[in-house]
Design a protein around this nucleic acid. Structure first.
Lengths: 146, 146
DNA sequence: CCCATTTATGTTATGTTATAACATTCTAAA
DNA sequence: TTTAGAATGTTATAACATAACATAAATGGG
């Protein structure tokens, strides 16, 4: 959270209470969380109902600063563990437990850059999501079929 | 479409008229198309209204056979140019014209496989989407700012 | 300090994407 | 030709997201 404040200060952006609350919730959750789940949790915290635009605005703000990422295949959001460094946006998404581990993988980024360049395509952002089973769920799956 | 029939035959799947109609429409469109746009077009073709489950079922069927792909970042669908070969599911998605070019990029796939393996993650499928400007739109953007 | 401008939030309404659940019809094989 | 499975029809609703306009808070110039 201190890191988040730094990022905001560096970019002249205001981490208002509602934005901070959304960031907190996304962080506390260690898996991707959907906008409507956030709305429910915020409503519970605040004791009053929260409407979609409130949360979507906070999400847009946080995405813009790179403090969170969107997992497109799940329509949900997860905190970024490396908020200030440039990095690769690659996620290992487990179909069993719903976790999404962010990896940095230099080889992938350079391969993507090369592919885009070869096609004459100007890359601006990317969404790289690998779906499958995380190590824990993989073990469990193996056990249950023994 | 002949190719699609072959894929179906090979897998013992039935390419029924409604599935074929959806596949046709997705193919005719050279950009990703959303489910509700398909619904409209089908309704126009058939002269009667078409309901979401009809189209989503056809989409699920075609996705399962690899005849089409889902572009997660756009919630839409596009025909697969290599329906029977194993391949890489990498898309260059243009934010200006909405095109999505499928690329095969061996380097990326091997880098992804290596990253997943290193993390002990069992990869089953992937969604790799690069957002940016395609060559045509890039040119136009350059011209308009001259 | 006060005004004006910008930035952020509140509020209403609606648009868009996707699926659950159950009924009916079709198809192919025994 | 029955019958089991596959496919489709139908109703309803769930889940995700934004447009548009009103209000309030913060910030900077005078």
């Amino acid at each position: 959270m201190a890191q988040a404040r730094n990022v905001c200060r560096a970019r002249g952006a205001r981490l208002t209470p509602s934005r901070e609350a959304v960031l907190q919730l996304i962080w506390q959750n260690h898996k991707p969380i959907g906008a409507y789940a956030l709305i429910e949790q915020l409503a519970k915290l605040n004791g009053k109902r929260v409407l979609p635009p409130t949360v979507y605005r906070a999400i847009d703000f946080l995405l813009g600063l790179g403090l969170i990422h969107r997992i497109a295949s799940l329509n949900s959001f997860i905190g970024c563990p490396f908020p200030d460094s440039a990095h690769s946006d690659l996620f290992l998404v487990c179909r069993a437990c719903g976790s999404a581990a962010e990896c940095s993988a230099e080889g992938i980024n350079s391969a993507i850059a090369a592919t885009a360049a070869r096609a004459g395509f100007t890359a601006e952002s990317q969404s790289v999501e690998i779906l499958g089973l995380c190590p824990q769920c993989n073990l469990q799956a193996a056990e249950s079929t023994e």
